[in-house]
Amino acid sequence: MDPARPSASSGPPSADSYAEVQASAEFAQLRRSYRSFAFPLTVAFITWYLLYVLLSNYAGGFMDTKVVGHINVALVFGLAQFATTFGIAVWYSRHANAKLDSRADAIKARLEGPGTRGADDTDDTESTEATA
């Protein structure tokens, strides 16, 4: 867990420093934390959506079942797609806030070095490192 520091202290990061960071354990952890969340979730919600499309097409009897009054399974299924979309958006954002942002900021601050993006970023670095 000792990420590479770029040799230059200011200016845009060099191609070499990107490669060094990419090879670091810290970056690997950030990438894993992002991909292991976003990729399976993408597969899951697309499958869930396609299930809805296919059931609408080929499971008429099931989708036409009345639940309450004139409200049938098809409508409930459709509304459930809204609910899962809202839920996944909130879930991902919480994950990103908790697991991705501080790691990304720390790596970015090291790569860009002090003084390249003004004082704000330096402050950020210190606070994220202190809490990380």
Partner: peptide, 14 residues
């Protein structure tokens, strides 16, 4: 090149 894209896209560096 992919290292630059990947690091940049995930961290915002550069």
């Amino acid at each position: 090149k992919y290292a630059e894209l990947e690091v940049r896209s995930l961290t915002g560096a550069g």
